[in-house]
Each structure stands twice: as C-alpha cells, then as structure tokens.
C-alpha cells in the first residue's frame, strides 16, 4: 500500500514551511535565478562582444544566451540542501524525531524539502512554456525537460542521503557534501554547457548522473536533443534512481546501528 496521505501532507507541510517567510522565499528565488544568469551573460558578452569571438565550440552568442536563460529554469529545480539537513540531523540527534514516526525518515525529509522545488518547478514550467511558445520552441519539450529535471532532483538527494550516512561513522560529512555540490555545479551544466568540454573529456560528465539535472533538460527544451536522446536520458535517470534506492537502503541499514541519538 502506498500510504499516499502522509506524503501529500508532508508536501503541503514542507511548502508551508518554505513559504513561512514570503519575502525571504521570493528574494531567494530571484537571487538564485538572476545572479548566475547575469554572470553567465556577462561572460558570454565579454567573449563575443568584447573579445570578438563569433563561435565557441560550435555555439554562437545567441545559442549560448538561449542556453543560459533556459538552464536557469532547470537550475532552480536542481536538488536543494536537504541532504545537508539530513547529515546535520544524524550528527546532532535531530534524526530521532523522524525515526520515531511511522514513516521512512529519508523519504520524509526529502518530501518536505522537495515541496518548495515542486512549487518552483511549476512556476518555471509555466514561464518556460510561454517563452517556448513565444520563440517557436515546442512547449511539450519543456514539459518533458521539467520531468527529467525532477528526476535529477531525486537523484541529487539520493546521492546526498547516501553520503550523509558517513555522519553515522564520522559524525560529520559536510566537506564531502560540499565537494559533491561543487562537482555538481560544473558537471550538471549549470555554469556552462557541457558540450564546451573538450571532446576527449566528454566522458567525464557522461559517466555521472549530474548532466541529467540541467544540461539534459536544457538541451531537450531547446530542441537540441531528439526524442530518442531524451528517452535514453529518462531511462538512465530511472536506472540511477534504482541504483541509489538500493544504495540508501544498504548504507542506512548499517549506519543506523551506529546512530547515537545525541541530546535529550
């Protein structure tokens, strides 16, 4: 039995929590979308308009700007920091609150945390579909791309939840989670399109699931991936999810035995 009720309630509760401070929520949203886009735009402007380049790795100024603006939508949906929250709970004993409830703590923390991202994904989807329609792109591609980005969100958390179990052993896993996030920023295509990687380095991002977070969805939304490539990406994302689901079960099974439930 799926026990959907608590999951829906946790989503609702997570959204209420995330939007408890409306101005903070809006500023965070605008800041996290606007600032990286502005930096990228300045970079491309400097290379093309000041530096006089006409093409970078086969992409024009317009291509790169299109990538920048479209990728902003999916960057907003990329995994949040609830893996850090999970690690902190293990470290401080806050996990006990969740262990006592008849729900999976890993899933519960995710659902509460992802509520905000789902809300943002909804906004991005509407904006993106309108923009796609306006510039002649297929709005349905945007919908598919958003689904892929959401699968990427799940993968991001699952990997983080697995890494967080190191806190059972070492009491701290902050540094590793930070390194993971830095790698993700580069290999997800959030900062630069991954086809800017040299041809002999393309395998680097292809062997990780991170390109499914931003690069893949952006390519499909911009019509640069065909349906087969998109279908493959969805299958690969599902495979990663299955892999990490098993990984989480194993690492948590062993980790929880070392949980100290500090405090109280």
């Amino acid at each position: 039995m799926l026990r959907l009720k608590w999951r829906i309630a946790a989503l609702k509760n997570g959204l209420q929590d995330a939007t408890a401070y409306r101005i903070e929520f809006l500023l965070q949203l605008i800041g996290s979308a606007g600032v990286p886009a502005l930096i990228q735009w300045l970079l491309w402007y400097a290379i093309f308009k000041i530096g006089g380049q006409t093409e970078v790795a086969g992409m024009s100024y317009t291509d790169l700007l299109a990538y920048t603006w479209m990728s902003v939508l999916f960057s907003q949906v990329r995994g949040g920091d609830h893996d850090f929250a999970l690690m902190e709970m293990i470290r401080s004993g806050g996990l006990s609150n969740y262990l006592l409830r008849p729900v999976s703590p890993v899933e519960f923390v995710y659902i509460r945390g992802v509520a905000e991202k789902l809300f943002v994904a909804g906004i991005c989807l509407v904006i993106g579909m309108i923009a796609s329609f306006a510039v002649g792109l297929n709005p349905l591609h945007l919908l598919g791309a958003m689904i892929l980005a959401l699968l990427g969100n799940i993968i991001h958390y699952q990997l983080g939840a697995m890494i967080a179990t190191l806190a059972f052993l070492w009491e701290e896993a902050y540094a590793i989670l930070m390194v993971k996030n830095m790698v993700v920023q580069i290999l997800s295509g959030e900062l630069i399109p991954l086809n800017l990687f040299p041809a002999n380095m393309q395998w680097v991002w292809k062997m990780t699931p991170f390109y499914l977070y931003v690069y893949g969805p952006t390519q499909f939304a911009l019509g640069r991936w065909n349906l087969t490539e998109f279908g493959n990406a969805i299958l690969i994302a599902c495979a990663w999810i299955v892999f990490f689901t098993v990984g989480i079960k194993v690492t948590w099974k062993f980790g929880i035995k070392r949980y100290l439930s500090l405090g109280g």
């Binding site: 608590w6 829906i8 309630a9 609702k12 408890a20 401070y21 006990s96 409830r101 008849p102």
Partner: peptide, 23 residues
Amino acid sequence: QKAQLWWDLPAVDAFDLLKAIYE
C-alpha cells in the same frame, strides 16, 4: 529538551501532518 515540532509553523499545521502520518 528537544523540539519535535517545526519551529516556523503553527502547531495546527504540524498536527495536520501527524494526523496524516498516523492515519
């Protein structure tokens, strides 16, 4: 010495969630 409810939400929202969790 340990808070189990969510700090930024009113109690009624937390209880609603617990109602769903415990069916």
